[in-house]
Nucleic acid binder design. Sequence first.
DNA 1: CTGTTAGCGCATTCAG
DNA 2: CTGAATGCGCTAACAG
Lengths: 343, 343
Amino acid sequence: MKKRATQDDVARLAGVSRATVSYVINNLSGGNIRISEQTRQRVLDAIRELNYQPNALARSLATQRTNTLALVVPDIANPFFAGIARGVERVARSANYVVLLGNAEEDPKYESKLLEILEERRVDGVVSCSSRLPDRDLRGLLEGYPVAVLVNRLIAKSDNRTTIDSVVIDEVAGGRLATQHLLFFGCQIIGMINGPVRSFSARGREKGYRNALEAAGLPVREEIILHCQPTVESGQKAAEKLLTNHPEVTALFCYDDMVAIGTLKAAKQLARRVPGDLAIVGFDDSLLAGLVTPPLTTCRVPKERLGEFALQLLLDRINNPSDPPKELVIQPELIVRESAPAR
Amino acid sequence: MKKRATQDDVARLAGVSRATVSYVINNLSGGNIRISEQTRQRVLDAIRELNYQPNALARSLATQRTNTLALVVPDIANPFFAGIARGVERVARSANYVVLLGNAEEDPKYESKLLEILEERRVDGVVSCSSRLPDRDLRGLLEGYPVAVLVNRLIAKSDNRTTIDSVVIDEVAGGRLATQHLLFFGCQIIGMINGPVRSFSARGREKGYRNALEAAGLPVREEIILHCQPTVESGQKAAEKLLTNHPEVTALFCYDDMVAIGTLKAAKQLARRVPGDLAIVGFDDSLLAGLVTPPLTTCRVPKERLGEFALQLLLDRINNPSDPPKELVIQPELIVRESAPAR
DNA sequence: CTGTTAGCGCATTCAG
DNA sequence: CTGAATGCGCTAACAG
């Protein structure tokens, strides 16, 4: 491995000083500084000849900026977070930032370690997705960063130095939307297969569900609200149980598409036709939603936009550090397909 | 934003010299250097009190190591690459590396730019996934790195300084496996809905398909080999065409699971029962494969293991720079589900 | 065992 | 327009 060329080498070969090289690299930076086209070319030639590439580390050390942002997700192989990552990447790129990905592997302990490691790298900001860390710890970790934004999670405000912005989707509205759709097309007895009890989004969605029923003057029957893990298997089990114990149920609002797919399987198992005998609405609009049979009617969470907005907030905050904390709420959208009646 | 504490601050507060602080941070690094438990504690206390966090940039500049690896993928929202990323992350983590993710957004031009940006960050190595860049360019880009490994792509050897290792799956064996499975269960007229003509993997899979037919003494009928894009829609269109023009076809080997799902839809459209009237085998074993109806029989590509092996190769190369180039070939595995006869 | 010192590669005044 | 000097925060000899 040959040694890399430095600015010094370039300067020497071009017969100019280091500062000059630095200037042409940073493109006529200074106000009243102008480099003659001639020397400029000489420098450029030298750079090419030596195959010189600036050392971002040294530059960052000197400028105190890394042009790097950190993104921490629970699991990058989860399409939900992959979508967010994509959105984040996209706008980071257009703003000339690189993103350092932290994959927590669903392990809160590793997540906090990650947050520390990334901070040591002196990134210019961080976006953290739906952490399972308690408010207190998370806040402490985040405050090491110049700026931070949270996706899909809120955190109590505080008067500390680092303002934490957030972007979330309106879970309650989503739950309401889904339930109303079911109501509108005549379903009377609507149950819910909800996600983990303690989950922020599970609570929101359930609240929306309850709201919608109440607004329609319908009773909320606790016995037809079940909880499960957000997986196909767990959803299937829960749905089988619910449908067996309460065969009168004609519609189910499911926590997410995985659970909805499990419910689909359960329906098949129990020989209930979808949507004829049983209407199903999911949540997320994951890749799968449109591909299963029948295609799922579901509440779309715009994952990429979530990521894009998160980064937008981050950039805003970098430029206006003293703005009041922002909290962006994105509305989900109902995607009507075939697992629930539609006409 | 308060200014961060530096090693100097710690040293001053602990009443020792910078070097001492550096030593305790790097945990009794030097051979004959030992710090008394007492001063050690003083330093630790000072660190805590100042909430000191080492600056990784400065450290890297001094050590010439970043403990960072770069991973470049065409699209992180594609489950295939997300799986690889997960594998890479996992072993990187266990080896105490952080990974810098580069998402090329399916744009070769941006991909090369990414490779340059990441190199400026002086990462210790790079793993690049299935680039669409021509050999020549890719090699040039990769040679800026101390070490590099390619996933799912081979590159001609060269005598340059940077050795490029690679890990690929045995596409030919996969194609053979799938086709043999179909043959074994009595399918006679087996067509193929293949992917993009120029794709490395498409060629390999087709070769395996041809091999299997020939080995069974069956003719290869060019008119029942079609190409399409690796999407559900494109696959569906191709399958409809093929099945309409050649209704005698009783089995289809599909380029990947997306195409297979498209084929599933086409079969439904044309009222051909799967696997009764038409047997289908996919490739990848993506998330979806097991969830569609009927569940897909498919050739599993172990995505995470691809990533894990890639990183293993990278670490090996870092430790043994002068080993001969390695090329790891991973065997795919047939996952038997219900879209093809199995008994 | 602990303190001193010289870089690492670059940006940025400040005088020419 | 250009060159010299200083510092960013830390590591790694090298002396004590």
